[in-house]
Design a protein around this nucleic acid. Structure first.
Lengths: 189, 189, 189, 189
DNA sequence: TATGAATGAGAGTTCATTCAT
DNA sequence: AATGAATGAACTCTCATTCAT
């Protein structure tokens, strides 16, 4: 599955053939078919696993137990940590086209994650910690901004860890107009 | 080429077959091969044309003649207008994987555009109109944030024009910490 | 038809496509189809015309009116003259594979020619002017020997006319053990 | 390769399609492509193998160790034996058109064989065992005469072995004016 | 359980033929 | 009558999948 993920990310699901995956994994073609009924199922498994790992990494119990402000910070850092640790998985999940080999249920994990994040954002809005506006759109923008950086990282060949991640965080926090209502600066105003 | 663009966007270059393109275009398979030597060349032509159209739309003479502050505003609006007018082309250009069918020279137009935008951003930074930091990264983030919105638009089925585009612009301007140094508010501080 | 002959000779009937023929002839593809119902018919016409021209050149009225000894000499020289004048037609006729595009009747002219030549040879044998043995085989050998020279000519790029055609004739005459029964040398023995 | 040889001989390389070859060989189309990268390479392999087998059959160590007179006789008989044993290979090699699918190096074996035979002929000429004249042309004629017989054999459907092969040999020996300088008859004159 | 040669449906491409101009 | 763009059947080649070893 690692080999498959790497190739799907580099070349698309359609653009990758099973012999290549087998070669990269160092096994025979037939062996892949002992664990997956077909290429479709392999694609689905790779996508689903990556998405689940991402979801689990981003929203853990600490996030769920925290107040929206802390939660947002944690989510952001988890996301960055995942992208640093699993750049291929992160990039693959961001491909624009997954429809060819995914049945609807494959999107459930992602949708659930999205709903949780939107909930956090909405709560944060309700206490004035974040800019007003459709929270789904706000999420898309904040996440999109980070995806933009990861694309730049891949294109330039510079690993994500070499970027000014704090500066990036500050910029995205400006994007959503984030301010900790408990911080002295905020209460002063 | 329109039919090809639509299908490449929906299904990936590898995931689209030539008879499908022909059917969508309402022509015979052989006719495609009168104008393109092979599927690769068709993909390249579609990509190159879309990229050139985008580049021309985003940076026009008005942008080139303007001061960096005005230029940034214009660029933003041009970009939005292009995405509204040509959602498939915009989305296709944002696919993460184009390497399979593009020879290096196909990236030249995009690189040139990027260099121009980075130049504008750098100028804006030098007069304090924009947040400090690697301008390439800043550009990736701002552009990425917008791409995030277009993805949301496609996924939700809501056309981009139905979004609060002004709100989005304001958020991204916050992202880059943009302030017009000539505006009264800015001079007041 | 000249263009077609040249290409069929160079590349085989199957290996030649109609647009190429049109291009070589300096006409449009459609124009070919005004004169020939299809490529098959064109091939047949080219073959039949070449064969008829050869047959007519080799056995003319002079040959038909002459005694077998003179006839043989004339036939030989006619054949050589034809190969010198129309090397492509000669070579094309000697291709081993014509079956794909010829209906049986296309072979009639060739068979008739062959029968005539065999007849001459048989007469010559009957007066002791030529070696004994199956005249068809003798003809194949004598003709084959000349074809061998024409192949050499094509392969080496040296025109047939530059060869020692008299020496070749003498050799082939030895092959069939030809001797003019009226010549002094022959009567002497 | 046997199936391919048979079909190439019957129908030309261009006139044979891959499914036909597969069917004749009793394998699937794809299997052919496991052993040959493409049809061109298959053609080349068939030609090269046939040519090498012919060359090896015609000039063996016995020929190389013998005096020119003996060598010529051996070469002749080897050639005849090859044509009797492998009529399709012999006929295929004699096709006039091979250029479409052969790269230059495919001709090397044939050229080498030719050079060896010409060498033998030249030696034979130097001791007066063979008619004077360009040995390449002499070779073309002698070989062509035999090819003529094989053509006749194929056209008539009579197997080569049913021909008067001794008579044919005598005729061709006359063609090259061959006489064993050690034979009593020769020494007598 | 692992292998990879074999399979054949289907993809990319060619080209004989047609027909509006 | 001549043209050549358009057509689609047929060809070359690929690759997901199977199965004897």
């Amino acid at each position: 599955m690692d080999a498959a993920l790497a190739l799907f990310d580099e070349r698309t699901w359609d653009g990758t053939n099973v012999p290549e995956i087998a070669a990269r994994a160092g096994v025979a073609v037939g062996s892949i078919y002992r664990y997956f009924p077909n290429k479709l199922a392999l694609g689905e498994a790779v996508f689903t696993e990556a998405k689940a790992a991402f979801a689990e990494a981003v929203v853990d119990d600490a996030v769920r137990g925290a107040d929206p402000v802390t939660a947002l910070c944690l989510v952001w850092r988890h996301q960055v940590a995942f992208a640093v640790a699993h750049p291929q998985a992160f990039s693959f999940l961001e491909h624009q086209v997954h429809g060819a080999y995914l049945r609807p249920h494959a999107f459930e994990v992602g949708d659930r994650l999205n709903a949780e994040l939107v909930g956090i954002l909405r709560e944060a809005q309700s206490i004035g910690a974040v800019r007003a506006g459709d929270p789904e759109v706000l999420l898309s923008m904040a996440f999109g901004a980070f995806v933009g950086v990861t694309k730049h990282s891949r294109a330039s060949g510079v690993p994500l860890s070499a970027y000014d991640l704090d500066g990036i965080e500050r910029a995205v926090m400006s994007l959503i107009d984030f301010k900790d209502p408990n911080s002295p600066e905020a209460t002063a105003s």
